[in-house]
Design a protein around this nucleic acid. Structure first.
Length: 363
DNA sequence: AACGCGGGGGT
DNA sequence: ACCCCAGCGTT
């Protein structure tokens, strides 16, 4: 009874010390690391990084900031060039919401500076609000993403399934307590946790010998680092069949259409495409496109998304095509549209090899 | 609580 | 094959 209950040594100090010497270079990671950042740069990068590995974001972020360096420049832009810059990155609603958020910031006459008000911007949830508030405005507030949740669960030796509300609630509390127990800047603590989760405390086979927290890590002490967090329930995957039609007019323009704003690839452009739950023969596809004669099938490929396998067949036709809402666009114009990876493949890679197979324009 | 929303990397 | 990823919004 003589000694007080030993207060757990703060993990923040060794964590941040590790981060300051091991932080990777990223275009959005301005130096010095403890300096407050431009909220717009933080929002753009954090939005791109949602459910997307950092290595995939680096070039996109540079291009995006080059084209839209400020919230004002983004707010003034049309949504189409925004989707063009997002092309291939996935989760395209992120781009639309980021665009809307920029307009909201301009309309409000400036940035909200607190996490609570940042959350009202479209596309800004609890994590992103915490990231912008701490990194750009120095607010002492956590930012818990999948990386941080994994690190904290392991350090504390708590079981849990990632992204389950009950798990995340506990982890957010743990992150708040970590910030309360140190005088270090919240921005440094938050980003250190993220970086540790991304590079050392990785989902499978973490590099515990390199971890600055290993001496205080319950999972490491009990050899549970490979089983925390518990795996999520596997999402069911369905198969979707799609047929896309490549058709040129006499000026080497391609017929394209815009997808509805909601749903998969919402608002993106595509070659005339039909989607069916079951496979479709080329003649059946021809009927669906209203073609007078069977199209020529020129290729097939599959594309795996999170909960779908999309099996594309690519067709070309020499007969006139009429397609409601479709328009002719030159290859140069198509390059400036928002395209999914599949449609980029079809319209940008495959189609140019077919120039010369023309039909009369009748769209 | 469950689901929709992309596409690619790692194992 | 399967897992996950600097998540968010809707139902």
């Amino acid at each position: 009874m003589g000694r007080p209950k030993p207060r757990q040594t703060s993990l923040a100090e060794p964590l941040v010390a590790w981060f300051l010497t091991n932080a990777r270079e990223f275009p959005w990671r301005d130096r010095p690391l403890e300096a407050e950042r431009d909220p717009y740069r933080v929002l753009v990068s954090e939005t791109m990084l949602q459910q997307t590995q950092a290595s995939r974001v680096v070039d996109r972020f540079k291009r995006f900031m080059d084209r839209f360096p400020t919230a004002h420049s983004l707010a003034e832009a049309d949504v189409d060039p925004v989707l063009e810059l997002w092309s291939g990155l996935g989760y395209y609603q992120r781009a639309r919401r980021l665009h809307e958020a920029a307009r909201a910031v301009v309309n409000m006459g400036g940035w909200p500076s607190e996490a609570r008000s940042l959350r009202e911007l479209p596309g800004v949830g609890r994590y992103t609000a915490g990231a912008v508030a701490s990194l750009a405005f120095g607010e002492r507030t956590p930012a818990v993403d999948g990386n941080v949740a994994r690190v904290l669960l392991r350090v504390r030796g708590e079981p849990g399934v990632l992204n389950e509300p009950a798990t995340m609630k506990r982890v957010w509390v743990a992150a708040e307590e970590l910030l309360e127990g140190t005088d270090l800047a919240a921005s440094l603590v938050n980003e250190s946790l993220i970086e540790l989760g991304a590079t050392v405390c990785t989902p499978a086979s973490p590099f515990c010998p390199a971890c600055p927290l290993r001496s205080g890590c319950v999972a490491f002490a009990t050899n549970l680092q490979g089983t925390i967090p518990s795996p999520r329930k596997a999402a069911a995957k369905t198969v979707l069949h799609a047929a896309s039609l490549i058709v040129f007019d006499d000026r080497d323009r391609l017929l394209v259409e815009q997808r509805p704003a909601t749903g998969m690839w919402g608002g993106l452009w595509q070659a005339p495409t039909i989607e069916t739950p079951r496979s479709l023969t080329a003649p059946r596809a021809a009927a669906a496109f209203g073609l007078a004669e069977a199209p020529e099938r020129i290729g097939r490929f599959s594309l795996a998304t999170s909960h779908r396998d999309v099996r594309f067949q690519v067709l070309t036709s020499r007969s006139p095509v009429s397609r409601q809402g479709a328009v002719w666009k030159s290859p140069r114009q198509i390059g400036r549209l928002g395209l999914s990876s599949a449609q980029r493949r079809i319209l940008v890679e495959i189609a140019p090899t077919l120039v010369g197979q023309r039909v009369s324009s009748d769209a």
